[in-house]
Simulated scan of single mutants.
Amino acid sequence: MKKQFIKILTIMVLFVFGIGTSAYAFTAGYSSFAELYASEEATDYTIKAADMGRDTTILALHGGGIERGTSELVEALKGYGKYNTYLFEGLKATDNGSLFLRAIDFDEPTAVSLVKNSDYTVSVIGAAGDEEITYIGGQNKILAELIRLHLINKGYNVKTLSISDRIAGVMNSNIVNKNKLFNDSYQIGGVQIAISKGLRDKLVTDSSTLNDYSGSINEALSVSWPKIVPHLQKITKSEGILNKFNPSKRNFDKKIEHILEKDAKTPKELIENTKE
């Protein structure tokens, strides 16, 4: 009865602050991998890591039966041969949600090492809801916007999350934001893609949608993003050597916001906006 009361109270608080519950499911899970390791059978989950020596790592933290469809998307992206990939997959016949480890608590050593040695990171997680929608967030706002534009230009419904959203992926503690310093000076962070259950189910059952969706993300990461990086590097270089001792980079953030305020409608427009 007490647990039920706490759950109801939590829902009420979330709605008061405008966060809502439609974008995610309530899952308590574990607070560390060590805790999960000590409590679960080794046969209940598997870890699949592929370090290809690439500069980008794509993660499925809740793969397999935990959040169906996330593994399938990361595996599809792995097929392009351009990314390191990591999958933590639930293998239980039922109740794979018990294996849930929040992104802000995800400290499994192999994943931590891969992210730490990557220039860019993307995490694919699940969201609740039967409608087909993608929620995108993370600290790397330019890359997030680039992926969003590639997806919406293919007809997908994509919502950019704000800081107040529970799955916005903007916290420093989120593993996706713990990648290498950008240009050796700025913590640019990563991108978190949260996909609704409705869309994840379609990715699993419809190979053409999976190929189209993964292809859009691949194009953003492998074709458009490399065109933007040199322009962002120029911004960090123009800020001076003292920036190495100031990871917050307020001026850099302001310039990123200025680029985003131009409200590009296509990936090509966003690329052009970063040149100015």
Rank of each mutant, 00 (worst) to 15 (best):
T43P: 00
I125F: 05
E75Q: 01
L59A: 05
T43H: 11
S238F: 04
A220H: 06
A50Y: 13
I133H: 11
I259D: 03
S32F: 09
L36P: 04
L9G: 13
E89K: 10
S216R: 09
S98V: 12
I19D: 09
Y186I: 15
L199M: 06
F252G: 01
I188G: 05
V170M: 12
Y24W: 15
A60S: 13
L143R: 04
I47V: 15
G64R: 04
K3L: 13
G137N: 00
A194G: 11
G97L: 06
L181M: 13
K254Q: 13
A127W: 04
V229N: 04
V170F: 05
T236F: 05
N177L: 04
G18R: 04
S222R: 00
V229Q: 06
N96F: 08
S39Y: 13
N246E: 06
A76G: 05
L36G: 02
K262L: 14
V122R: 11
D130H: 11
K7V: 14
L114H: 04
G155F: 12
E276S: 14
K154L: 13
Y186S: 08
A60Q: 08
V16F: 14
F252I: 08
I6D: 14
F252E: 01
K154Y: 14
A194H: 01
V115C: 03
N183S: 10
Y135P: 06
I241D: 15
G18E: 02
Q187S: 13
E272D: 05
K154F: 12
G215T: 09
I66C: 03
V124Q: 08
T10I: 11
L270G: 06
E67T: 10
Y80R: 05
N157F: 07
T94L: 07
R148P: 07
A38P: 02
T94Q: 10
S216H: 07
A38S: 13
K78M: 02
Q187P: 07
